[in-house]
Amino acid sequence: MTVRKEYSVGGEAVRVTCDPAGGDGYVVRVGDRVHEVEAHRTPTGALAFTIGGKTFLAAVAPIGSKGDTHVRIDGRTWRLKAHVGRRGGAAGGGGSGVLEAPMTGTVLAVHVKAGDTVEVGQTVAVVTAMKMEHKLAAGVAGTVAEVGAAPGDTVEQGHVVVRIEPAGEVA
C-alpha cells in the first residue's frame, strides 16, 4: 500500500511516497532522497518516528479540506500546500482566475455576474471577517464563468467566490 502525496514546497512540486517495510518500518521517499523510518502513533494521536537514530515527535493535522497540511515539529509549524495543477492556485489571486475567500467570513459585496468581462486588478467581490475587509481582485482579464456566493453569505476560507475564464485561453 503505497501512499503518495505531492506538496508544493518553495514553488516546486515535491513528490513524497511511503511504503510499508514490515512492522513499524517504512521507506519514505522525498523527491529522490530515501529515508528508512520507524514510526508510531502515540496514544494522544501525535506521530513519533526515528530517522537515522534521531527521534521526532510531530503533530500533523489538515488545513481545510483540500489536502493542505500543518506539521508541527521541533517547536515550529510548517504549512504544506497540496500541489495542484497550474491553474486555480490554492491561495487565489496571483494571476489566477479562481478567486477564493482568504478567510472564513461574510460576503459583503459581489460586483460581477456570470458573463461579465473583467480587467486585471478589478475588484469583483469583498469578503469581511472580524471587521476587516478583504477585496478580491481579478488576477486575470477575462469573462466571469461562475459566481459562487451572494452578498450576506457566510463562506469558508478557500470557498470559490468568483471564477474567471481568462480571455484568449488555450485549453
Partner: peptide, 26 residues
C-alpha cells in the same frame, strides 16, 4: 526539512483519528 514531509506522509500511512485528514483530497 525532510522530516516535515516525512511526518506528513507518515500521518497518512498510519491513519488514526487525530491526524487523519478530512475530505477526499487527503
Amino acid at each position: 526539512p525532510d522530516e516535515v514531509l516525512v511526518a506528513a506522509v507518515l500521518a497518512q500511512a498510519l491513519g488514526g483519528v487525530h491526524g487523519a485528514a478530512t475530505g477526499a483530497a487527503s
